[in-house]
């Protein structure tokens, strides 16, 4: 009886009042969701800081500048892993960006209609392959091929005593910094290509058609109209790709060779922050070891944050133009 009455009352209530109640609830829900995320982020930073504190306190600023990593003597430095992370991610971006642009432009501007969907779907599927699969493929398929057809010819053609020779020394089995960068490039390529394609599709047809109408060639339309139009979003896409490359773990761990210290050549073994943590965290029992790995995590967090902040600034500057 009572429940029926309350239903009646609600039904009788003025529309505005009922709407306000719902609005209020919705507002609270959204606010909670947003603040929860913020709190989770804050909590993450704080826990990384607390976890990494023993390492920072023990090694001081030297933690960031030393490439020494010796679990037996308990000496840890982040420089090797940070260098490896930045080098592989940057190289991956350099390899992937032109290809991603090419794929996106082809799909939007040049691709025959019947092929558009299959190729588009294939690109999206590539983006969905788990990174461990890339790692296995990299180690068992890509590395032997790379060693035989790229690394060995380069190493053998290098003149002894030159800088080029120093840059190309390494174990000829297809692992190392350059291989890891190439695998990373393959991994971020579909992601960037898919985002760039979406961006190209947002260009109003009138804009492009006008350019064609003025007598521009396809090349001119892409270079002078389409690309400038999507520049803002494209920077965002690139930065997101870079973000993924920075944090990529399993694929890199399989192929990078995992030696601590500064990589001295493009075929040398190296390590990244993520690969070091993945390798050692499970078995790290010492306080300083665990704490140094958490501190590395914090460093990666900061690097990623800087990249995203930079993307924001760049996009903001673009928007103001």
């Amino acid at each position: 009886m009572t429940s029926e009455a309350s239903v009646l009352i609600v039904a009788d209530a003025p529309r505005a009042a009922r709407g306000t109640g719902l609005d209020r609830a919705f507002e609270i829900l959204c606010f909670t969701a947003a603040t929860f995320l913020l709190a989770a982020l804050g909590g993450l930073i704080v826990s990384l800081m607390i976890g990494g504190w023993p390492a920072f306190a023990h090694f001081g600023v030297g933690f960031f500048f030393s490439a020494e990593w010796d679990p037996v003597k308990e000496i840890y430095g982040a420089a090797g892993a940070v260098t490896g992370t930045l080098v592989t991610a940057t190289l991956a971006l350099i390899f992937a960006l032109p290809l991603a642009l090419g794929v996106a432009i082809f799909l939007v501007e040049l691709c025959p209609a019947p092929l558009r969907r299959p190729i588009g779907t294939a690109v999206e599927l590539l983006a969905g392959i788990p990174s461990i699969v890339y790692g296995m493929w990299g180690l068992f398929v890509f590395a032997p091929w790379f060693s035989k057809h790229v690394q060995m010819p380069i190493m053998m053609s290098a003149t002894p005593g030159t800088l080029w020779e120093t840059l190309t020394t390494g174990v000829p089995n297809g692992s190392g910094i350059l291989s890891a960068s190439l695998i990373l490039a393959v991994m971020i390529l579909p992601f960037m290509a898919a985002t760039l394609r979406e961006l190209f599709l947002t260009i109003p047809p009138q804009v492009r058609e006008s350019a064609y109408g003025l007598g521009s060639t396809t090349f001119e339309v892409i270079g002078k109209v389409s690309l400038p139009y999507i520049r803002t979003g494209a920077i965002g896409a690139v930065m997101l790709g870079l973000g993924r490359a920075l944090g990529e773990t399993m694929a890199v761990t399989f192929i990078i060779g995992n030696s601590h210290g500064f990589p001295t050549s493009m075929f040398a073994s190296g390590s990244t922050i993520a690969s070091t943590i993945a390798n050692e965290f499970a078995e790290a029992t010492g306080v300083l070891h665990t704490s140094s790995l958490i501190a590395l995590g914090l460093v990666l967090f900061v690097i990623t944050f800087i990249v995203l902040a930079l993307a924001r600034v760049l996009i903001g500057r673009q928007a103001n133009l």
Partner: peptide
Amino acid sequence: GANDAVKWPTGQGGKGNDG
């Protein structure tokens, strides 16, 4: 020295036995 992980003087690291 001896440990689960050491500072290897040389060589490459593979992940796990299969690596």
